[in-house]
Design a protein around this nucleic acid. Structure first.
Lengths: 198, 198
DNA sequence: TAGTATTTTCAGTAATTACTGAAATTCCAG
DNA sequence: CTGGAATTTCAGTAATTACTGAAAATACTA
């Protein structure tokens, strides 16, 4: 491994904990990402200096994230692993998995809380807070899901556009394509005069 | 605390580790989010059953995330904490901090790696992989930063639009507002025929 | 500025998470 | 089937992270 590759692998190991994976998993992923050809578990263990069993667990974790692919090589019983070549594929997978693990459970909890609230005691303010959080998370995650499904070309174009998308939206509003209601629905969280708190 | 509030707080405690904070921090935040009035550290410690010092550390952590506000009450020496009323403010803060902690360091590493590569040994394939990752992360994070700065009204409108934004982009392309180059730059990661790998 | 209320620090300990090596299991060629 | 190559499981241990109580520092009142 060249110095640069080592630094890359090292970094993924260190960042791992911030990203919700461990050092092993981070380094294994980094190694596979850079590698030109698929690697088997023994190669990974040797290159990174981890035990074989640790690599096995790390690869299982990466498979559960759908971030690595398992394949076989002709005339070799070993299992070989690689990452997708297309970074946009990786990006989309990551988004989807992060959402599934970090957002969806909360959304469920909020939904259930709102349902239960009907038939029980519940502080009205707390309930309103829960509703507001729910609405925002639902809106944002649905949107992100939509966006991320766009084909790569369109997605790239949208990203390059950046904040200038605002002009496009304004143009759209001017043309009143939306059946007369301009600027979207009113923001349910807007509580005029309550922000900032004393 | 009502049952619903307890569940909410509990959930934030459990999800904490997935979100990169600990149980204490998660629960403190949840409690403050639901509370109608600012709370002081003693109240928090008592309600959640944590030690006073633990709460102190948790609040410091939340302050470092800029997720809580410190304020004083007339005739009381204690410090009181609250979350912003506007969930969009919270959302924006969270995005910005997550980016600072989880994305920016990687972007720096990638940039440095690319610089170093000029004057040293570097496997061309690995270097290409690094470049590709760098470009995608930079594009996506810049874009997200842009988007997230839009005023709430515009942001909401954009999110409600979802995937239909594609039609807007197509309309824009048809009008050739972009000086003739349609659909953005070619994707530098496209390696035709290499995906999927055998 | 002395006295006290409040917050912070930190060393020690508890709890959790990561990692290893050995044993068990699975998988396949012959 | 059988034998061996490959992978997985898991109990034990190491390393890390979370939490507490006591002491120190800070901030305010009189």
């Amino acid at each position: 491994m060249t110095t640069i590759e080592q630094r890359f692998v090292q970094h993924f190991g260190e960042m791992g904990s911030r990203w919700g994976i461990n050092r092993t998993v981070g380094q294994i992923y980094a190694l596979l990402y850079l590698s030109e050809r698929p690697l088997n578990a023994d190669e990974i263990a040797e290159r990174l200096g981890f035990s074989r069993s640790n690599v096995s667990m790390g690869l299982k974790e990466l498979e559960s994230w759908r971030l690595v692919r398992l394949q076989h090589q002709a005339g070799d019983r070993k299992e070989y692993f690689s990452t997708p070549d297309d970074v946009w594929t990786i990006f989309r997978t990551l988004i989807a998995e992060k959402r599934k693990r970090e957002v969806d459970p909360t959304l469920s909890m909020l939904r259930e809380a709102m349902l239960e609230a009907r038939e029980g005691d519940a502080d009205p303010h707390a309930l309103q807070r829960i509703r507001t959080m729910h609405d925002l998370i639902e809106l944002a995650s649905r949107w992100f899901d939509d966006i991320q499904r766009l084909d790569t070309r369109t997605l790239t174009q949208l990203m390059r556009l950046g904040a200038r998308v605002q002009r496009l939206l304004e143009a759209r509003n001017r043309l009143s394509l939306v059946g007369g209601r301009r600027g979207g629905l009113p923001n349910p969280d807007r509580q005029p005069g309550k922000e900032p708190r004393p």
